[in-house]
């Protein structure tokens, strides 16, 4: 049985093609203003890479903010369920999942059966999300993908005390004006996100082993900051960004 999952997030759209629990292909693209189009585009790309025709797909499920817009979706399900389903398929030992996406972050506690036991989400605020990092990258004129590496060269983390994205941006601009090293500022930004996400995980009550998914999991600096707060290692899947799409393909098979 071949199934596909499409995760249309606030910043990027992701697609995954699965055959009998095996990931055949994944694809990522920007969502832009047309969620349906972006979803169909990444799906077509993933199918092409997997060498499967659309007609050969038995079931499609959609998730993410744009989940209701995908015309070919037979099942619509939330990212919470999907991230858990994806992780359960690929990394069944994981009990706590931290997903940091473009506009929200969430912590999910998983049962031994791989089902969601409980979850918490960030409040109505962009701090501690991918969008927060994008704003900071712009202020620092640095490519976001180099954030992780740069922060590891920091001598010390600059102190970013504001949790609001808008205020934190002005704080970063003040630090730049004061001549603070770029690397230190980036490390400070990662510490700020780490603290915020740590508080959220604590609200849930976490259980090891812990895994991080979502686009922000690609940033080594955020992962390291959160590991320091937690005092335990965090596992990162090679499919971190596409876990929602993979999980959607798993859910599509179950339905």
């Amino acid at each position: 049985m071949i199934t596909a999952g499409v995760d249309i997030g606030s910043i990027t759209a992701k697609a995954a093609v699965l055959k009998e629990g095996e990931v055949l292909a994944v694809s990522v693209g920007f969502t832009g203003y047309n969620a349906a189009q972006a979803g169909m585009k990444v799906l077509a790309e993933a199918l092409a890479e997997a060498g499967v025709a659309m007609e050969g797909v038995d079931a499609v499920a959609a998730t993410g903010y744009g989940r209701r817009s995908l015309p070919v979706a037979g099942t619509i399900v939330t990212e919470i369920t999907c991230h858990a389903a994806g992780v359960h398929l690929l990394h069944p030992r994981i009990r706590t999942l931290v997903d940091i996406g473009g506009q929200d972050s969430k912590a999910i506690l998983m049962g031994d059966d791989g089902k969601v036991k409980n979850f918490v989400m960030n409040d109505k605020c962009a701090a501690g999300t991918g969008r927060f990092l994008e704003v900071m990258a712009r202020a620092l004129e640095v490519d976001l993908d180099s954030f992780g590496e740069l922060s590891q060269r920091a001598e010390r983390a600059a102190r970013i005390s504001n949790l609001c994205t808008v205020f934190a941006e002005s704080e970063v601009i003040s630090l730049i004006a004061a001549g603070e090293e770029r690397e230190n500022i980036i490390a400070g930004i990662h510490e700020a996100i780490g603290s915020r996400v740590f508080a959220m995980i604590n609200r849930l009550g976490y259980k090891e082993p812990i895994m991080m998914t979502g686009g922000v999991a690609k940033n080594k600096g955020v992962v390291a900051a959160l590991e320091r707060q937690l005092g335990c290692p965090i596992e990162i899947s090679p499919y971190a960004q596409c876990m929602g799409a993979i999980g959607a393909a798993v859910v599509a098979r179950e339905k």
């Binding site: 939330t78 990212e79 919470i80 369920t81 089902k115 969601v116 036991k117 409980n118 979850f119």
Partner: peptide
């Protein structure tokens, strides 16, 4: 949030 809660 509501959808995820109900799925759970």
């Amino acid at each position: 949030r509501i959808d995820a809660f109900m799925e759970m």
